[in-house]
Nucleic acid binder design. Sequence first.
DNA 1: TAACAATGGTTGACTTTGTCAACCATTTGC
DNA 2: GCAAATGGTTGACAAAGTCAACCATTGTTA
Lengths: 146, 146
Amino acid sequence: MSDQSSLESLFHLVHGLKRQLHQQTEQLNLGITPMHIRVIKIIHRKKPCTAIDIASFLGRDKAQVTRLVNTLIERGFISRMPNPNDKRSHYLCPTDAGIAVIKEIIDIDAKTVQTMTEGLTSEELTEFQRISSIMANNLHPTSDSH
Amino acid sequence: MSDQSSLESLFHLVHGLKRQLHQQTEQLNLGITPMHIRVIKIIHRKKPCTAIDIASFLGRDKAQVTRLVNTLIERGFISRMPNPNDKRSHYLCPTDAGIAVIKEIIDIDAKTVQTMTEGLTSEELTEFQRISSIMANNLHPTSDSH
DNA sequence: TAACAATGGTTGACTTTGTCAACCATTTGC
DNA sequence: GCAAATGGTTGACAAAGTCAACCATTGTTA
């Protein structure tokens, strides 16, 4: 009685995953949404990081990114630094509070992956990663063509 | 320069997939959104189908389902039939117009899967499906526990 | 069988996510 | 030096999702 369509089953997986992460991160009582969390993680991983970097990584409108970044600044999790190469742009960096949050998020992520991948071998996992990155690339070629 | 986190790469895949489907279905000019399309597909596959069936399949609020169903009825793609077993409930059925739409959607889905899975063997695909259904189940156990 | 809990569904109010268009400031390319 | 492109902001809005209150019917059980 479960799935049927291969597309739907992928949607289900990701929906469940987002649910799980949301439930966990909500308990940190940070007053931010799942998208904010994704943005902090991106800022943490990519240094230096500008708003455009975030927008292009997420594949989303820069308007949305502006607003997500603004509330993260209001909440004191990140701050803006002048971008020495471009006066229109800023570098976004986690504050100390932000770094503390990131640690907790990484922990939650790890535990969620643990739960999700229970019973799977590391060979299966790398195979899964490999196939899904091929799929992602088929859908949204990442400039490695001509 | 692409991913980093295994979670993010899954999000990317599904985001790209949704994008692709949305782009294609938009060109049918049906005046409905991606979620409406998913609902029609569910109604098509599960007969008989009630609002609750849809809500539980999608894992979403019944309020949302009520509204999605309403606009599908307004647009003339589905209709309500009395549920002989329960006077509170209705069976939802595609109309002739709905059936025509479903055919086009199935076509788009197939082409999208084709694109997405290009260069992958059918063994890889079944393996991918197998692993992702294990993961989905780990996150959201489907009543097969105790 | 009357009372009560549970279920299917609807509505209102609201948050979150996402897009589009217009706009400003700066940078880049000719 | 000028036009086009780029980084970013703002306003307005559509789409997606949730919560709580509610109604009608169904199921349970004292």
